[in-house]
């Protein structure tokens, strides 16, 4: 009974899951699969950004900085011989720890001051990455980063990550895990308190919510997932350079988030995949495709501030109303 209900409510997600699992079969091209895999890595970062920017309403522009910390962390640790499976959580925790100390002073500022302060942090990370030669390899960065270690399985042998399909599944696993964590966070009182702080900080304080601590928590979790995304990125790309801390990368995520739908769970994923697909198909425009994004972003801000997901939800509601009206009319006729 309960299971029946579960399937009745969740069938669209199951279809999506089946589709996601079938992606390597549906897109045999190594190039396309690589693009999809990297989009999923960025979707993890964008989901993190969504927590602090979308749900908590704090425009953090330090996200690429934490992505870079995760990336360099995994690069250095795995090159030093540590297993990827240990290096990844350690690097993400490092990103989270750094964000805690970055958040302490910056989250005391508000609005555009916070945006500028976090932007500064991002720039500092990219400068450090570019100039601390002995640690980061300077502008050439670090190359020859090992792939994630194979996972030994009893009986089956082990699962390695040399094939593009295996890499895709690895990233898909992390993406689903991130979505799961975000789902639990957002659909809880904790999630409500993030929105409450975004919505009305004074009232939040008056009902006993420590707005500063709430923002800090959101910021640290967001940065943890930026670190996870960065770590996976480094290991799959086999190299990192100061580019991973660049403003451009950050800007892309903000576009993904705003076009997909900030403050929704599906928004960051939909936005990242849709815009990545669009970018690929607009390759012929070269750098002019930024122009297209700019126009899209403005249009989205004006006409659907809740992004693609908001658009679909509004459309769905209209369809349901229309359908109900049709059904109503028909039952009137039949009755």
């Amino acid at each position: 009974m309960r299971r029946g209900q579960f399937f009745r409510e969740k069938w669209p997600y199951l279809i999506l899951l089946v589709f996601a699992l079938a992606v390597p079969a549906l897109f045999p091209s190594r190039y396309v699969l690589q693009v999809i895999t990297m989009s999923c890595v960025f979707a993890i970062a964008t989901l993190g950004l969504n927590l602090i920017l979308g749900y908590t309403g704090q425009v953090s522009l330090a996200h690429a900085g934490f992505f870079a910390i995760g990336a360099y962390g995994v690069a250095m640790m795995t090159k030093a011989g540590l297993s990827f499976w240990l290096a990844l959580p350690l690097s993400a925790l490092l990103a989270a720890a750094v964000s805690f100390f970055v958040g302490l002073p910056t989250l005391r500022t508000r609005g555009s001051y916070f945006a500028i302060a976090t932007l500064c942090f991002g720039v500092i990370v990219s400068i450090v990455a570019g100039s601390w030669f002995s640690l980061t390899g300077g502008h050439t960065g670090i190359v020859g980063i090992p792939l994630p270690n194979a996972i030994p399985f009893p009986l089956v042998g082990e699962i390695g990550f040399h094939s593009k399909a295996a890499q895709y599944y690895l990233v898909l696993g992390f993406l689903l895990l991130t979505l799961f964590v975000m789902h639990r966070l957002v659909n809880s009182v904790q999630g409500l308190s993030f929105v409450a702080v975004r919505n009305n900080e004074v009232l939040a304080g008056a009902v006993g919510i420590n707005a500063f601590a709430t923002k800090l928590l959101s910021f640290v979790i967001a940065s943890f997932f930026a670190g996870i995304a960065g770590g996976i990125y480094a290991s799959l790309m086999r190299s990192v350079s100061p580019d991973v801390a660049s403003i451009n990368l950050m800007f892309n995520w903000v576009v993904y988030l705003l076009l997909g739908g900030a403050g929704t769970l599906a928004g960051p994923v939909v936005g990242t995949l849709a815009i990545s697909a669009l970018t690929e198909s607009l390759q012929f425009l070269a750098e002019y495709n930024l122009l297209v994004f700019g126009a899209l972003l403005v249009a989205a801000m004006v006409y659907c501030p809740r992004g693609l997901v908001g658009l679909v939800e509004a459309g769905g509601k209209k369809v349901r109303v229309y359908y109900r009206r049709q059904v109503g009319v028909r039952s009137d006729l039949e009755g």
């Binding site: 009182v189 409500l192 929105v195 409450a196 919505n199 009305n200 009232l203 939040a204 008056a206 919510i209």
Partner: peptide, 23 residues
């Protein structure tokens, strides 16, 4: 309460109360 009514207008009615009970 506040002189100019303050609510979490981005939340549903019940969620306004649930989040106010978080403390």
């Amino acid at each position: 309460t506040f002189q100019t009514t303050a609510l979490f207008n981005q939340l549903r009615v019940i969620d306004n109360l649930v989040v106010a009970h978080k403390l």
